[in-house]
Amino acid sequence: MSNRVVNILVPVVSIIIGLIVGAIVMVVSGYDPVLGYTALWNGIFGDSYSIGNTIRQITPYILSGLAVAFAFRTGLFNIGVEGQLLMGWLAAAYVGYAFELPRFIHLPLALLAAAAAGAFWAFIVGFLKAKFSVHEVIASIMLNYTALHITNAVIRNLSDGSFKTPTVLESATLRMPWLREITDNSSLHLGIIVALLMVFVMWFILEKTTRGYELKSVGFNKDAAEYAGMNVKKNIILAMTISGVFAGLAGAMEALGTFQNASIKAGFSGIGFDGIAVALLGANTPLGVVFGASLFGSLKYGALNMPNEAGIPEEIVAIIIALIIFFVASGYIIRLGLQKFGKKKEGQ
């Protein structure tokens, strides 16, 4: 079998297997799989409202996926995207309501604030790793908790004891009346453009700049990079900081788009952690992340419609969605199987 055929077959087969196993789960637990998948489909693409909200759900996933993928490419595991995202969320919401500026300054400023907040939170991790060899996984996990509680405390203070900040001003919001109109009042916002722009930025940095080449080299082999005269420490800090920019912007999507404020959270939003899966599904490439995020976001959003339209309980829905993602992620196994199958045929 030619490589091209395999490359097309693998994802198709893995999605089909995922759907079949999901269907078995539904049948075993006494629900109609056809009804279930129709509900999932309608939940994602059913009408303009669903499509709008699906895109809205995909947006922060793209950015958190980029954050994780960028770090991976430079040999770092940024598990702290969640914390960086929360910092960015708060920063964007604060700038969004506290200043009164014309739109063309205010919105970019709020985005910039989110990027800076995320970058700063990630910089701490990079700095600790570069200067004191503190493992980035430990540092970033701990900073996740720190971020959660710091943002909660700050939000409480900013809002005089309430649980959310004031709503961001018109001039800073990513929401557009016409976007709501064409999608039947969904919460679709301009953030998707920011996210796609960042996809290009990541590709450009990694593939088209000398700095990007250095960052990748450090990722491939630290010692070789150092021997070649690259400043490894500087590159580690820089890589984490750029990763944090993406994460902070993911937070801005929630602050300026989806929620229009920052509210006290009992636990993590999950977007940062899901970013790890998104990045891996996308093989850590910018374009791959877009597809990983699309799959993740669509399934996550569409799943809401399964209890609604097909009456399947949330718990079963969670299992089915996890199974589909699981099989897509294990496409490598299917690839191996297909290759063996192909070789046998050639041998005959």
């Binding site: 490359n7 097309i8 994802p11 198709v12 374009l287 791959g288 897509v328």
Partner: peptide, 12 residues
């Protein structure tokens, strides 16, 4: 290959 496969997956 992985990239292309994920492209196709979402394409589908």
């Amino acid at each position: 290959g992985l990239l292309i496969s994920s492209v196709v997956a979402t394409g589908a």
